[in-house]
Design a protein around this nucleic acid. Structure first.
Lengths: 333, 333
DNA sequence: AAGGTTTGCGGCAAGGATTGCAGAAATTTT
DNA sequence: AAAATTTCTGCAATCCTTGCCGCAAACCTT
């Protein structure tokens, strides 16, 4: 009934705790007969080593903290399995938290993870995070920190990202090559550097192609559904409607496509649409939605690997892993 | 550089560790001036209590293990935030693992969670789990176990589920009332009791309505995309095509709808479709997909609450929370 | 002023696993 | 048979926090 510990086994066999410990770890100092007896009793009692005690001893928890805005966002839902796979291979576990895009929650979660003495932290910034003292705190405690997807330039640490500028640039270039002139950019929350980078890529592509910029075609769209639909309505009902949309996320793009259809706008003839993240649902739409795909699973894998590499080599340089994004062209353009 | 512990503060202030501990927890025994000094130094050194040590002491980890088939399945992606919310309120964290619908992985993860001395385990069975010794092991260690969504009757424990029999029964009844006679049931993996329950509800509804059963209309469909599409092709190309489909999951229903459309089958005129889980993407389809909605977020909330209630009262009865599902009717029927 | 109460703090133990060092037992050597 | 090895095992410290007991000094009571 009570907890089975090394002590339980030691007492029953009339030997010391240290002998039991060594027997279980197959230490050469221990007699075979003793080992056998220990193994058998451990098996029989279903002994499970208490990780808590071991972790207290080596001052780390074999746990990696993962902090994402929302696990329902498909990028994260896909990246987390990638992290889990590598972590499991190394005998680590994942402590996953959501920030719900709240700066305060992000701070609290970071506190909590540090208090749990996680071995490392993988983080994708909340949309409202503009100060980074909590990240510096992580670093001052020598806990490996890896930022992924939602990056920030203020903090020097390992990162797993895509080249958002380039991704947006390429997408817009494709739209222009298809003859689009009034291309809208429906950006995410203002503070998100990735949204800004995409906006810059968008602007650059227009400049390079000599397409006159029109600031009214640039909008900030909420990620919250009702507000998002309101913005989309505005864009689609505008007197001079865009003939193409590059959206910060597939959620925006998907609803843009659906609402446009409901308004009788023909896609892609009258309106071309490209989103970001290549969510599975894109294929289900009619017409299927084009999107900039990120290697989400691999991002997760690389992020965990970066944690381990920082954990092992006490290096002073940070890796900046930039993965390739690809424009998945479907019938929406 | 080194870890900041109570000892660090105690030494610096020339007082004892216990005094520091009590000061931080605002114990009335400690002088205000001492408290103030301790608080200030703790602040300055950025002291974070070491949860590991505290957990070792109370023999539990303030952590709840969550084991789901795939976090990308929308039910889980929505339920986990529900769990996280309650857990955070209680100062608990979530250790989230995926089984990828593998029995072996499920066993390994359970082991790992037990070894981490989680306070409780919330689990949704893998599709290939037909033996339950690992669950009994959890119970024999007195770790609260809560099954949710994917249930099994072999294990007596707390559960958070919906009435799958009833949900399917109602869905089929609606289809029949709309004049459908050849209703197909596209079930999930054979071993899943929830799929079986839905099948029974389906059968019962046909019987009660006097609709002649046709076993060729009952299919097992893989959750893996290619195999799923192949099965759907078969169903839709069959000589005597069904005039309605009740699918085990929205994934199946969504692709059924899309493929039917691509084959020129008019929906809902020639084919009505209902899925399960009410995924967000359903609204994006054309026509939007009807689905049996489960209160996923609430399921998560209730599951965590059950863990806590079992943790506090050492009771001998188990709660079986059956939540209401609702048929969300959209244009696909 | 002597005894009793309060206030403030320190010491010790416990929780489970690991590990270096010391030491006992068994074996071999001289 | 004594000495020198080799094998094996136990002690004790460590990780950090908390709860309990106890002690000293200061205060109050009569």
């Amino acid at each position: 009934m009570e907890e089975i510990s090394l002590k339980t086994i030691a007492t029953r066999l009339g030997i010391s705790i240290s002998t039991v410990s060594r027997a279980l770890r197959n230490h050469p100092d221990i007699k075979d007969s003793t080992k056998k007896a220990v193994f058998e009793l451990a098996e029989q009692l279903e002994y499970e080593p208490n990780q808590l005690a071991a972790q207290l001893l080596n001052r780390r928890s074999n746990t990696i903290g993962v902090l994402v805005p929302k696990i329902t966002y498909s990028l994260y839902a896909q990246a987390i399995p990638g992290m889990a796979e590598v972590a499991e291979r190394y005998g680590y576990q994942l402590l996953i938290c959501q920030t719900d895009d709240s700066y305060e929650k992000e701070i609290r979660q970071v506190q909590s993870l540090l208090s749990s003495r996680v071995s490392g932290i993988i983080l994708s910034l909340s949309a409202n995070t503009t100060q980074f003292d909590h990240l510096r705190k992580i670093q001052s405690k020598k806990v490996p920190l890896v930022l992924f997807n939602r990056d920030c330039e203020e903090i020097a640490c390992s990162k797993v990202i895509i080249d958002n500028h380039k991704a947006a640039y390429e997408a817009v270039r494709v739209l222009i090559r298809k003859g689009r002139q009034r291309i809208a950019y429906l950006g995410g929350p203002t503070h998100l550097q990735i949204s800004q980078k995409r906006l810059e890529g968008y602007r650059q592509a227009l400049r390079d192609a000599g397409v006159p910029p029109d600031e009214t075609l640039i909008k900030v769209v909420s990620l919250e559904k009702d507000a998002m639909l309101a913005s989309l309505n505005e864009v689609l009902d505008a007197p001079e409607r865009p003939d193409a949309i590059l959206a910060y996320s597939d959620q925006i793009a998907q609803w843009g496509l659906v609402m446009a259809k409901r308004k009788g706008i023909r896609i892609p003839d009258e309106l071309a649409i490209i989103g970001f993240y290549n969510e599975p649902a894109n294929e289900l739409l009619d017409p299927p939605l084009s999107s900039v795909a990120q290697p989400a699973f691999e991002m997760g894998v690389r992020a965990v690997e970066l944690v381990f590499s920082e954990l092992n080599n006490a290096r002073f340089t940070f890796d900046r892993v930039v993965l390739e994004s690809t424009l998945v062209v479907r019938e929406s353009i």
